[in-house]
């Protein structure tokens, strides 16, 4: 395996490990979504189908810890993975504004899809989540994502055919 690819895989594994094993212990109200950053990072470098599959698998891993919402993260991350890969055309990490926009939209879409599918919040709580916590989470995830995505090694070739 190429050194750069290995570095990227290790980086993604670190995101997933942190999200599942360490981040839940930090009382951050779920504002920073490290798993979503992993999905976006993969989606920015792979084909849309593979990005969707990666999102689905990482979502199932997260859902396993919250069985009464099983499938909700899987669907949200599959859609986000596909969408980011389709829209970003593999070069979004080169432009800060484009990266920020992609991260913010991805987080908002994933959050809204998850909350609606999980069905845990209703009425004013749902409204409060959609107009306050979801945008706040998007801002935090975007801010952190802009920094940590730059720590990952760049892909060997950003130009991909067949889109």
């Amino acid at each position: 395996m190429e050194r750069r690819t290995l570095g990227f895989v290790v980086g993604i594994a670190a995101f997933v490990l942190l999200d599942l094993a360490v981040w839940p212990l930090v009382d951050a109200r779920g504002l920073l979504d490290l798993m979503l950053l992993a999905v976006v990072a993969v989606a920015g470098r792979t084909r849309p189908g593979l990005a969707a599959l990666t999102g689905f698998v990482l979502g199932v891993l997260r859902d396993a810890a919250v069985p009464d919402a099983f499938g909700a993260s899987a669907l949200a991350f599959a859609v986000v993975g596909y969408g980011v890969s389709r829209l970003s055309a593999g070069a979004f990490e080169e432009r800060v504004a484009a990266t920020a926009a992609v991260l913010a939209i991805a987080r908002l879409v994933a959050d809204v899809l998850y909350v609606l599918l999980a069905g845990r919040l209703h009425g004013t709580d749902l409204l409060l989540h959609l107009i306050w916590w979801a945008p706040l989470g998007a801002i935090v995830t975007t801010g952190v994502g802009l920094v940590v995505l730059r720590l990952l090694p760049p892909p060997a070739d950003r130009r991909r055919g067949g889109r």
């Binding site: 084909r47 849309p48 189908g49 593979l50 969707a52 599959l53 999102g55 689905f56 979502g59 199932v60 859902d63 919402a69 099983f70 499938g71 909700a72 899987a74 669907l75 599959a78 859609v79 596909y82 599918l117």
Partner: peptide, 17 residues
């Protein structure tokens, strides 16, 4: 292939849900 994969993922997730 991409479309088939994403449709399969979405259907699988909806089934799990």
């Amino acid at each position: 292939l991409d479309t088939a994969l994403v449709v399969a993922c979405v259907l699988a997730a909806l089934t799990l849900r």
